[in-house]
Design a protein around this nucleic acid. Structure first.
Lengths: 251, 251
DNA sequence: TCGATTTTGTTCTCACGTTCACAAGCTCCT
DNA sequence: AGGAGCTTGTGAACGTGAGAACAAAATCGA
């Protein structure tokens, strides 16, 4: 505890038992690669094999794994099953996490039907929507329940992860309700920036942002020097249809 | 060309007219924030206003925008409409990009119905699936067509972006066909690592990876020191059901 | 016209992430 | 037993990204 001040500047301040965020984001990829190897009956794999399967280079993979401990054998490689278990444990998917999905539109439907929810470790305990027309509908072996039941469900099932698949409009309110009910991790598919208090983790998945990033690079490829000629002032007149009331920064 | 060697070490080697990847990933967020401000009738906004709306800090926002040029006015802020146009142009969404979606399962359905496809700038020109039972089905104002028509469609509509929403199995083959047909940007929802030749951009959206990242942090919160006790060798015996044929690195 | 005030654009520094390269350590063969 | 041959784990160099801080430039009021 009091040794906190004695942290020497030697290594890049490897946080106490903390794994770099970039590494955390790759662990699930390694986990999937290991599962695939295991399913093929491969018992041992080198960092090179694993790296290829995971789509990264082997030095990065070895460094990532080194944050978890020394689970390999020099001159041999990694035991697939053993490493798989260690990574699963580190991520936390050896236990089950209860998940609620809020907003049963097209996307909510798709996620609800996602067989096995991608990977084991997650259990959908409720599908919620505020639309009375949707409540009661059966999806797979689940039934859509009223959003008003949120608090009871979160408490009863110890739900720690919420998935928001509502439109942008109600997303912040849904988020607030989730947090108030005790959910501490949120996966947001709505195209808005949600604000949450400290201690709540939030991740965002945004189709249109991904497409726009692709478009940027695409433009660089085909266009190269054929950019739209940098119009210093395009047809701005007439584009601003809105009255611009109260426009501005301060008042 | 020959000036390549004369690159001085002054700034962090700001790539020739190249925008840092981290900045590119944020530009769509700024674009959305600007659109929201514009819709509210705000005509001018400071970097602080914009940063709040976009969920970043203002220094980062200003630095990001500085890569595009000097589009603000000191002491005043940014003209919302003007900046919005400049960012849209830089990203490339002032033109229309033709998109095909391959794999019309639950997720493909959801994306096909996604009204306006999130943001303007993208036009779905075809929904493709290899399943004869799906071909012909109407979704919105589109009809599912046979995957075999891919090449013809890509050529006819100058499709540069492909979205893969198939299961993991056929994803790599679909990807290869897309690339062979001339698609140079791919958005992959299938839970596999796709390999593509140089010059083809690929981005991945993976629900189960996102959930696992959340689970990792969640475990840190509640568990803290209550990790599953680091079993050095768990119930490994019996877990490896598979014959382990040809298992190993070399042969 | 001039100074006060505001806000941008940029520089500098630090932290993080990636990659290289190699010593340490394991297995296998003789 | 001992050396040859691999493969891991890690130290060090390098590149990218984030944030603080400040000079430059614009507006506004007197």
């Amino acid at each position: 505890m009091t040794r906190a001040s004695s942290r020497r500047p030697g290594p890049p301040t490897r946080t106490e038992r903390g794994i770099p965020e970039a590494t955390v984001a790759r662990l699930p990829v390694y986990l999937r690669a290991l599962t695939a190897l295991s399913d093929s009956g491969i018992a041992t794999a080198s960092s090179e094999d694993l790296a290829t399967a995971a789509g990264v280079n082997s030095a990065k993979l070895r460094k990532d794994l080194s944050y978890l401990g020394s689970y390999g054998t020099r001159g041999v490689g990694y035991d697939v099953e053993y490493l798989r278990y260690q990574i699963a444990r580190e991520i936390g998917v050896t236990q089950d996490w209860a998940v609620v999905i809020v907003g049963i539109g097209n996307l909510g439907h798709a996620l609800a039907n996602y067989s096995g929810f991608g990977t084991r470790g997650f259990r959908i305990v409720a599908l919620l929507d505020a639309d009375p027309n949707l409540v009661g509908e059966r999806i797979g072996d689940m039934e859509v329940r009223d959003f008003a039941e949120l608090e009871a469900i979160v408490k009863a099932d110890r739900v720690s992860i919420g998935v928001i698949t509502t439109p942008a409009g109600p997303a912040q309110e849904v988020c607030d309700r989730l947090v108030a009910a005790g959910v501490t991790s949120i996966l947001n598919f709505a195209p808005v920036v949600l604000s949450v208090p400290d201690g709540v983790d939030i991740r965002k998945v945004d189709l249109s942002i991904e497409l726009q990033i692709l478009a940027y690079h695409e433009q660089r490829k085909s266009g190269e020097a054929a950019l739209p000629e940098v119009p210093e002032l395009p047809a701005m007149n007439g584009l601003t249809d809105l009255p611009s009331v109260g426009g501005g920064v301060g008042a």
